[in-house]
Design a protein around this nucleic acid. Structure first.
Length: 713
DNA sequence: TGGGAGTGCTTTTTT
DNA sequence: AGCACTCCCA
């Protein structure tokens, strides 16, 4: 016990040893959040205030859930296996599997990932003869998800105009289709689970009695429905221990509701609020910069991080001529750091958008620096893996039209668009799944599709009673997938991934041991949908880490480079256009980026950047101005290296003479209304001369030189 | 049926 | 620039 609580600081200790009450822990970056959370659980269990059985711990990512489980089992000698520690989606899935009948789902219901959802919406639009230009499928997905995340079904959705009315109708059709097929999208898992508990009194009472202590990680990322779900579960007198940091809320764009933190304080008026403000991660200058930046946000619960680690090094700032120049600078610094003995794994390059990684990768590759990029395509999202999974899904649930369409003609077996149109029409008529409609099909289509259905039947018979990995092996082989990739020119890697899928299944069976409701296949498929990533190869490799700022949340490194700090990129113009809220979210993102660094932080920007195949001229990010000068050391090159900025008119209008007043492309200018901007291009001459100016936040403008007053800066 | 050419989009991302 | 998607022709 004393071991458990040793080395906690006073607020941490206070949080961990609170009596069973509602509590909100405002945990700043690097303040020992995960430690407090896990120690709290361990303390509650080891002091017999709750059994492992009575704990419900919720996280957002599988990684966080795994880490919590691992740490917990090292803290207390209990079997953490059966404990309810997981992601919102994972836990809801578990609950729905256990009570599939009450939830109105087939036992082997399958989970649609975002790509599956999009495919289904597209299919629906086609069937309903709706113009997908007027109703873009992506927007519809967002519309549907946003409603579900607010707990709103199509039947309750409000529409004040015809356009929205139509979207609600599509939403309703989508719900029907999902029900017909017996599939759930991600948001559905939560909503379905919530409704089940709300509607089913005995079930609710059961879980309310069971979970006495509910702990939530990253509470600032919860959406409306998730918070309601928590409140519902806690409704029988359980206590909620919520840990979060409003300053690190960076998922508003996907429905996260920072307001939940204030709401929590209001809903549980007696809740204890404890602030963890001592940072154990970063040196003083880095922390001071982070604090100075986040201070500019108005909507905050208030919190100021401090450290007793000393000031440390100044923040290094670099303004490059171009993105390539910036990449060169970063890679040069890294090579020096590595020569000085810093481990490459302790060096991270962060960027706002994934597209920025390209230049950096190129430069790292050229200089022979090993690196690893996080983000991008995940294992279970690869096409060959999705194909294999689609066959497996059909074995488990033949009504899964998405899976059906994915593989009915892959590898090709002579089933063309014509046949499928017929099939879909028939299915629509007799209100059945495509699979079942196949029997009613006549002619050539009937034969080819019939052969496919028989293939699935045969596979089902042949694999019944086989262990999971062998099922997959058999299906991959007999479906023709393996042969297809064997023949394909670039198929080798895909074949390897299919082997890897079989391995993943073997590992899954070993790890999970117990087979959940609906058998090994169903639970493996759920696992594949819910845990699309984490399958990172070469984890322990000595490589520099490249990732988006979002992906870096929760991680820390000795040395961090924040690249591309340019107005319009970071903060991103799309966010800035969303107004104050958008800008504040970008600022929180910057805060997250800065607080990843332990010892040394670099911030850099470029005057020009290739974006979407075009050169853009940029101004330094306003966030750079928010870092106090005294904390920074500027490392800019001397002017001797030739500026990458072309002279005025060297492209665009073909205007050879420099314009009056020393204006040229790349020149920073000031405008009375739009503020500071950079000249991007020019056209015309004399009285017709116009320049295009990037004003960052105020946008891109064409201005006539004769009228607009532009002062060179 | 399937490949090649043409078209359009492009912030962040977990589940 | 790069990628996904569509369309059209052999």
């Amino acid at each position: 016990m004393s071991d458990l609580l040793a080395n906690l600081n006073s607020p941490q200790l206070q949080a961990v040893t609170l009596p069973p009450v509602h509590a909100l822990i405002l945990a700043g970056a690097g303040s020992g959040k995960t430690r407090v959370l896990t120690t709290r659980i361990a303390w509650l269990i080891s002091t017999n205030q709750v059994g492992p059985h009575g704990v419900l711990a919720v996280t957002f990512t599988n990684k966080a859930a795994k880490e919590m489980t691992a740490r917990l089992s090292s803290l207390v000698p209990i079997n953490v296996r059966g404990m309810w520690i997981g992601t919102f989606h994972g836990l809801c899935n578990r609950l729905l599997r256990a009570h599939f009948r009450e939830a109105g789902l087939p036992q082997t219901f399958q989970i649609l990932d975002s790509a599956d959802q999009l495919a289904m919406v597209k299919r629906l639009l086609k069937n309903l003869n709706i113009d997908d230009e007027k109703y873009p499928p992506r927007e519809l997905c967002h519309f549907i998800n946003a409603h579900k995340e607010q707990g709103v079904r199509a039947a309750q959705a409000e529409a004040y105009d015809n356009y929205t009315q139509k979207r609600v109708e599509i939403y309703a059709e989508y719900e029907n289709q999902c029900n017909r097929e017996g599939v759930c999208d991600f948001a559905e898992l939560l909503l379905r689970c919530y409704e089940l508990l709300q509607r089913n009194e005995p079930l609710r009472a059961h879980y309310q009695q069971r979970f006495r202590q509910i702990l939530v990680d990253e509470f600032q990322d919860t959406n409306v429905l998730q918070y309601r779900w928590l409140k519902l579960l806690a409704g029988g007198g359980a206590h909620i221990f919520a840990v979060g940091d409003d300053d690190q809320s960076i998922y508003r764009f996907r429905g996260a509701e920072v307001g939940n933190m204030r709401e929590f304080e209001r809903d549980y008026a007696g809740a204890n609020v404890i602030r963890l403000e001592q940072n154990y991660r970063s040196h003083g200058n880095i922390l001071a910069a982070a604090n100075a930046i986040i201070k500019n946000n108005r909507e905050r619960l208030g919190k100021n991080l401090w450290t007793d680690a000393g000031d440390g090094e100044p923040i290094r700032a670099f303004e490059a001529y171009s993105d390539l120049d910036e990449a060169r600078f970063i890679v040069e610094e890294i090579r020096e750091l590595v020569r000085d003995g810093i481990s490459p794994t302790q060096i991270a390059i962060l960027y706002r958008s994934n597209a920025q990684s390209r230049v950096l990768e190129h430069e790292l590759f050229t200089k022979g620096v090993p690196y690893k990029v996080y983000g991008g395509l995940r294992f279970f999202e690869r096409q060959e893996v999705k194909h294999a999974l689609a066959y497996l899904r059909l074995l488990g649930n033949q009504d899964d039209d998405t899976a059906f369409l994915r593989v009915v003609n892959f590898p090709t077996r002579g089933i063309g668009a014509r046949s499928l149109e017929n099939l879909q029409a028939t299915a629509h008529q007799i209100n059945s799944s495509l699979y079942n409609a196949a029997a009613s099909l006549t002619g050539k289509a009937g034969q080819t599709v019939g052969a496919f259905v028989r293939l699935i039947e045969t596979l089902r018979q042949e694999t019944a009673n086989l262990p999971l990995p062998e099922i997959i092996e058999h299906v991959v082989e007999k479906s023709g997938l393996a042969q297809h990739y064997r023949v394909e020119k670039e198929g080798q890697e895909r074949l390897e991934n299919l082997d890897e899928l079989i391995n993943a299944a073997a590992t899954f069976v070993d790890d999970e041991g117990a087979i959940g409701e609906g058998g090994a296949l169903a639970s493996f498929l759920a696992h594949a949908s819910l845990e699309a990533g984490e399958h990172q190869a070469g984890e322990g490799q000595e490589a520099v880490q490249l990732m988006s700022v979002h992906a870096a949340k929760g991680l820390e490194f000795d040395v961090v480079f924040i690249s591309g700090l340019e107005q319009g990129l970071f903060p991103h113009e799309n966010s800035v256009n969303e107004g104050k809220e958008g800008l504040e979210e970008e600022r929180r993102l910057m805060y997250v980026a800065v607080t990843r660094a332990r010892q040394r932080l670099y911030v850099s920007c470029a005057q020009t950047r290739m974006l979407h195949g075009q050169t853009r001229y940029c101004m330094p990010s306003s966030f750079l101005d928010e870092i106090p000068e005294g904390l920074m050391r500027k490392l800019n090159k001397k002017a001797e290296s030739a500026p990458a900025v072309p002279a005025f008119g060297s492209f665009g209008g073909g205007y050879a003479e420099p314009a009056a007043g020393g204006l040229r492309v790349g020149q920073t200018v000031e405008h009375a209304k739009f503020g500071l901007g950079v000249i991007v291009s020019s056209e015309g001459r004399g009285a017709d001369a116009r320049v295009q100016v990037n004003f960052g936040g105020a946008g891109m403008k064409w201005l006539a030189l004769e009228y607009a007053k532009l002062t060179p800066v």
